[in-house]
């Protein structure tokens, strides 16, 4: 039962991560040349958001945060 939940969560994380990542990087690409302080901050934030999405995907497919079971 528990295992099913974990698989579900991981699938959700990977799928959601891909969507968010694509959206974030697309938005970053589209906004690349906007001027002004707040838009520069937005771009930085989008970059980090995309990075977070990648982290979530990697955690979802067990590349990151995959620790051996401790007794």
């Amino acid at each position: 039962m528990n295992v099913d939940f974990a698989v579900l969560e991981r699938t959700g994380a990977v799928a959601g991560g891909i969507i968010v990542g694509v959206v974030a990087f697309y938005a970053l690409y589209k906004d690349w040349s906007t001027p002004g302080v707040e838009n520069h901050v937005f771009k930085l934030m989008l970059l980090l958001l995309g990075f977070g999405a990648i982290l979530a995907i990697l955690a979802g497919i067990n590349v990151l945060g995959n620790f051996p079971k401790v007794a």
């Binding site: 939940f5 974990a6 969560e9 991981r10 959700g12 994380a13 959601g16 991560g17 969507i19 968010v20 959206v23 974030a24 938005a27 937005f42 934030m45 989008l46 958001l49 977070g52 999405a53 982290l55 979530a56 955690a59 979802g60 990151l64 945060g65 995959n66 620790f67 401790v70």
Partner: peptide
């Protein structure tokens, strides 16, 4: 103390990251 549950946290993080993306498009 056990390791934290990575799978659940990854899913939960995606919720928050997703809200960042929607907020961006709200302003756009």
């Amino acid at each position: 103390i056990k390791r934290l549950d990575v799978a659940f946290a990854a899913w939960n993080s995606v919720l928050l990251f997703g809200s960042g993306a929607t907020m961006h498009y709200a302003l756009e």
